[in-house]
Design a protein around this nucleic acid. Structure first.
Length: 104
DNA sequence: TGCTTGACTTACG
DNA sequence: CCGTAAGCCAAGC
């Protein structure tokens, strides 16, 4: 099981109108936040990468600023220029399973 | 084998 | 809100 597969599963599990931060995915996978960012380009457009935002709610820095448009198109809760992490943040129950570093 | 870079995070000012 | 600094793990050279 590659890390990319786990990340792809989590990102794909993010419902429309919701978002998750790199740190959230990293925490679920038990890896560093940078690793999530490294596997993201590996996933390409096979997953809703735009639903993955920064810890402060800022959309992905890549794809030129196209992420906010995609998020807005899905009805994501925005607060000014950034996503409202208070409500838009995906429930961890949506994943249900947590890949802890020490066994499952 | 070792250094540099990065779709990151948190903390401080 | 923005800039800087330290910490983090993996890929690239």
């Amino acid at each position: 099981m590659s890390l990319a597969e786990d990340v792809a599963g989590l990102v794909a599990a993010i419902p429309a109108g919701r978002v998750a931060s790199y740190g959230d995915l990293a925490a679920q996978l038990g890896v560093g936040p940078r690793q999530v960012g490294h596997v993201m380009p590996a996933l390409g457009d096979g997953v809703p990468w735009w639903r993955v935002v920064r810890a402060d709610g800022t959309p992905a820095t890549c794809h030129g600023g196209q992420a906010p448009a995609l998020l807005d198109a899905e009805g994501t809760a925005f607060r000014g220029r950034r996503v409202d992490m208070r409500t838009a943040r995906v429930d961890q129950k949506s994943w249900g399973w947590v890949k802890a570093p020490s066994g499952s």
